[in-house]
Every structure is written in structure tokens, then in C-alpha cells.
Design a protein around this nucleic acid. Structure first.
Lengths: 212, 212
DNA sequence: TAAAAAATAGGTATAAAGGCTTAGAAATAA
DNA sequence: TTATTTCTAAGCCTTTATACCTATTTTTTA
């Protein structure tokens, strides 16, 4: 490993970013590390910095990591994205892998795993935290039913719902009609197979649309 | 600031701990940083290392940060604990302050805030992320009713709410009148300081009343 | 460019939740 | 035993959510 790699780190928590930046920066083969605090910001940085490796958190307000990965891979098929998540939850990393991520680390990993992940992924292999490999193999035998994902706007609305806002308040927040929010909410209930607000919030928590 | 401080960092995510360790370690007046990955482990380290400052995450499996802080302060009244959390959520930091924490940082903070927090708290002052000060002041003018924890029945009702049941369905489930469930729900909103169902569910998730 | 999907928004309902008040019975604590 | 808390329940009223319609504009995809 003689290369000097450029990294982009996407996470909404500055303290985590700064810590991770120092941690990754301590590896000898890293040249520069750029930061983005959400999916949208990240997408704007790709062209500018041409990263060798991207670390992508999943739970982020606005555009989450899965969505951001999908869009990035679509435009830059050879981009090397490594997912990051608090949980070993199955939906999380299968979502990231389907979106085109080359690796996945749980945030309980150590610097050694980070180093291995970078090296492997940069050399064209995959890398997954040992803790989640089991779940991956199990997942292969389960349903392949592509669970409807939510649209960008729906995720946005759901996020506001979790904050405890009413439809009218959400409408004001997003500068759209209350009736549009009503409609999004209706579609959310259908897509998430929920009966009411409680179900929506649980779904949001499970799918990393809100942090808890 | 000439002192050489000893820090204990309590967080269940190794990657965050390692990053934070490097970040805090980069400050000149820090001597050593010890780590604990949960409340229980932390309590065992206090006597051994006599920390000048403790950074304490709130969300942790097993014993959470609030409980760990309570116990630590009970035994070592002069211990300097700074809470850490993903959210600017009011319940969180009021919980930590009531438990005896001297400061609170949201994880969206930068190294400068961390430095300020350490200095202030070590010198006997309090330190709170600017983002949460507002909430704190508002909270002072609100009810001072030391928010009771929920009764057994209330927890039961809340659990059913999270399952997506309506008040009528919950009433049938628990063999009581719908109006009684209405009342419990009303009390739940007040006690958890929520505005609606979404807030109740988030509260339930945060307090381990439902698994997610 | 045509087709599909997503975002927008209104009509018209009913169901459910939320807010404020009172109050008795049962369990628990001082 | 008395006092307090909890559980129970209801009235009354307002707001919000849910359900099922239709439908236009914009964006994305094939």
C-alpha cells in the first residue's frame, strides 16, 4: 500500500466526524480527508475531490446514506463506498449493499478494521465487519422482495412526523400545502404497512430515518 | 490551564471512542484517557483512575448514562461528568443534569466545544452546548414538577400504543374503558413532555419500553 | 419522446387523538 | 390509620389523523 488515498467522510455528527478524521488520518497511506454532513452535500463533493474511499453513515436527516449511495453509484459506478452504522441490523447493510456499497463497518469497530476495510475495498475486494457477515449469509436465504423504499420527500415528511409536528406544521416547514402532507402521510402508511402514526415512527427508527 | 487531566470516556461504540480519544488526546493539557463501554464498566474504573473529567454517552445497552451518572455522583459527589448525546432533546440533558452531570455536549459539537467544556467543568463551572441552552432556559419556566417516571399501567398503555393499537383496541386488550385509556394517554403526554403519538413512541424507544 | 413515477393539492367523510374538568374506588406509603 | 398515588371513568369540545376520491404539474426513466 504505497498509494496516497483521498477519503470523504459522510456523517451528520461533527464530533464523530472529527474523531474519525483523526483516526483515519493517522493511517500512513491517507492523503486527505474531506467531510460532508449529509447525503446531499456529499454528492456535491464527489466530482470536486474524486475520493478513493467514502465512509458513509446511514442514519442522517434529509437524505440518508442508502439513498446517497444509490445516487453516487449511479453516476460514478466505480466509487468505493463503505457503509457505517450503529447497528448490526440486517436491513441496514443489505440496503447499503443493494445500493452499491463495497463494504460495511459497524461503529463498534476498531482502527484495525477501518484499515482493513480501506485496503480491501480499494483493491477491489469487499469488506464487512465480522459481526454482520453472519446476518448477510442468513439474509441470502430470506426474502428477496425488494421492500418499497420511500421517496426523498416521503422520508423528509416522515422525519418531521417523528419530530412531533402536525401535518399543518410540516406543511409550513416544507412550504407546501397541508393537503400534500396529508397525501404523503397516507402513502407512508401504505408503503410502510403501518396503521397509524405509532407505526410510522417505529418504522422510521428501524430504518434509520431518525436517530434514537 | 497547566494541569494534566485524566479522562474517562464512556460510550458503547468503539469507533466513536477511538476517534474521540484521539481528538481529546490532541489537547495539550490531557494526560491519560481511559475507556469504558458501558455504565457498569465505568463504575469499576472510577476508583482505579480517579478521573478529572468523564465523558458519558447516554444511549448505552445495559446501564445507560443517566443511571451510571446517578450512581457515580452518589458515591463521588465531586466527580465531573459531561453528558454526550446525539440529540438536543430536552429530556436527555435534564435527565443528566438531575443525575448530577456538570455539562452536556451534543455530538454535533466540534473540538473547540470539547475543550471549553473540559476547562469550564474542571474549574467548577457548568458547560452546555449552545444548542441546548435555549431548551434549558425554556424548561426552567415550564413545570418544575420533577417529571415522575411512568406508572406500571402507563408503561403498559404506552407499549400498546407503540404496537399501533388505538385507544379502543387497547381498552379491549386490557379490559378497561376506552375513557380510561384516553386518560392514561393524556397523562403520558404530560409526563413525557410530548405533543402527540410520535413523541410518545420516540420516548418509548429511548427508554427501552419497546425494542426496535 | 412517450411512459412512469413523484410531488403537488383539493373534496368529503369518519375515526381518533388531544385538552380540560370532575370524581370515586383501590392500592400504597407515611 | 390517614394521606397520597394510582387506576378507574365520564362529559364536552376541538384538533388532527385516516380513508378514499380525483387530478394537474414536474421530474425521472425507458
Amino acid at each position: 500500500m504505497k498509494e496516497e488515498l483521498t477519503i470523504i467522510l459522510v456523517d451528520d455528527h461533527r464530533l464523530f466526524r472529527e474523531g474519525m478524521k483523526m483516526l483515519v488520518g493517522s493511517l500512513k497511506f491517507i492523503k486527505t480527508i474531506h467531510e460532508a454532513e449529509n447525503g446531499k452535500q456529499f454528492l456535491e463533493l464527489i466530482e470536486k475531490f474524486e475520493p478513493d474511499i467514502v465512509f458513509m453513515d446511514i442514519e442522517m436527516p434529509g437524505m440518508n446514506g442508502i439513498e446517497a449511495t444509490k445516487r453516487a453509484v449511479e453516476k460514478y459506478p466505480f466509487i468505493n463506498i463503505i457503509g457505517l452504522s450503529m447497528y448490526g441490523d440486517e436491513d441496514y447493510y443489505t440496503g447499503m449493499i443493494n445500493a452499491g456499497a463495497k463494504g460495511f463497518l459497524i461503529k463498534n469497530s476498531g482502527i484495525k478494521d477501518v484499515e482493513d476495510a480501506i485496503k480491501n475495498v480499494f483493491e477491489g475486494y469487499n469488506f464487512f465487519s465480522p459481526e454482520i457477515l453472519n446476518g448477510l449469509i442468513n439474509g441470502m436465504f430470506k426474502k428477496n422482495t425488494s421492500r418499497n423504499d420511500l421517496t426523498e420527500r416521503e422520508v423528509e415528511v416522515l422525519y418531521q412526523i417523528c419530530k412531533g409536528l402536525s401535518n399543518q406544521q410540516i406543511a409550513d416547514e416544507l412550504f407546501i400545502s397541508k393537503r400534500t402532507v396529508d397525501k404523503h402521510r397516507e402513502n407512508l402508511l401504505i408503503k410502510t404497512n403501518s396503521k397509524n402514526t405509532a407505526g410510522l415512527v417505529i418504522y422510521a427508527v428501524r430504518n434509520g430515518i431518525v436517530d434514537v
